[in-house]
């Protein structure tokens, strides 16, 4: 387990009339090297949960362990170190760009880590490559880039710290379909090549199905499910009850299955669907 929470509870505005429980007794464990999708309705506590993983928020009660260490038992310096271990990319991260060149902005994290110039350069190059950003942009001002490129720069800024865990809060929000697929493909590549743990918060069941190995379902400040993709999407009705959904292609295959076609109902991506149909044709189940 790389990240564990124990009875994690967080309340906003304690002691004011606006007090609100954003997380209620959440106990989860994130496996090292896993790719975890986090889904949930708006306001279900997803963003609050991930802000605890790198000590941005302090739990009202309960504990957070990263790599076996209790975050709030350590001293402040140690907590800042955690932020290099758990890289957090917030929603619309392009709004955090501030340096004069793209290079300097990506280098901000590694610089804070206290690395040498040579190491910093190497990190920046690595991150630039991972997000698929052309090297010619490195000397440009980040404010001159397009929205999608800015997003890549911002994500590279976190990847450059080489975090063991990369947490992304809707990294594809507001991008066009192509930008969306590209960013997610880059993140998947990063996950496979660096063997790091990735947590992806998303509203798109398709994106989650395509990328994640397991899913955490948040509902009303609580963790409702934490299981494999298959186990979660099997409970389509429960998901629908809390305002979530299953991938469209899964719906199609469940219907096909009900109609009597001998296809598996556990199909979550278009690629799997293609393979399944090919298999059926080959086996002669479908004419």
């Amino acid at each position: 387990m790389i990240i564990t929470t124990e009875n994690l509870t967080y309340k906003y505005g304690v002691g004011t009339p606006f007090e609100k429980t954003a997380l209620n007794n959440v106990s989860i464990g994130i496996e090292d090297g896993d790719y975890v999708g986090i889904i949930g309705h708006t306001g279900s506590g997803k963003s609050t949960l991930i802000s605890h993983f790198n000590a941005i928020l302090k739990p009202t009660s309960g504990r957070v362990y990263v790599d076996g260490e209790d975050l709030w038992q350590e001293n402040k310096l140690k907590r800042i170190q955690t932020r290099f271990k758990v890289g957090l990319v917030f929603q619309y991260p392009e709004y955090q760009l501030f340096e004069d060149t793209v290079y300097n902005d990506i280098a901000f994290g590694p610089k804070n880590m206290g690395l040498s110039d040579k190491d910093i350069e190497q990190r920046v190059m690595m991150a630039t490559e991972f997000v698929g950003l052309d090297k010619k942009y490195l000397e440009k001002s980040p404010f001159d880039l397009s929205g999608g490129q800015k997003r890549r720069v911002a994500i590279a800024g976190v990847m450059a710290m080489s975090p063991k865990v990369l947490v992304l809060d809707e990294p594809a929000a507001g991008l066009d379909p192509r930008g969306r697929d590209e960013i997610l493909a880059r993140i998947r590549e990063y996950h496979q090549e660096t063997k790091s743990t990735v947590l992806l918060v998303s509203h798109s069941m398709e994106d989650i199905a395509k990328n994640a190995n397991s899913i955490i379902v948040m509902n009303r400040a609580e963790c409702m499910m934490h299981a494999s993709v298959k186990e979660v999407f099997e409970k389509a009705e429960e998901l629908e009850k809390i305002g979530l959904d299953i991938p469209q292609i899964t719906k199609v295959f469940i219907s096909l299955n009900k109609l009597g076609y001998k296809v598996s109902p556990d199909i979550y991506t278009v690629e799997d669907a293609r393979d399944e149909i090919m298999r059926c044709i080959k086996d002669g189940d479908v004419k």
Binding site: P93, Y95, Q96, G157
Partner: peptide, 19 residues
């Protein structure tokens, strides 16, 4: 609100505002 968001984002990149 925005200040808080940006502060958190920079903190996540290891920015240190307190020492």
């Amino acid at each position: 609100d925005e200040t808080e968001k940006i502060t958190n984002a920079q903190k996540a990149r290891g920015a240190d505002f307190e020492t």
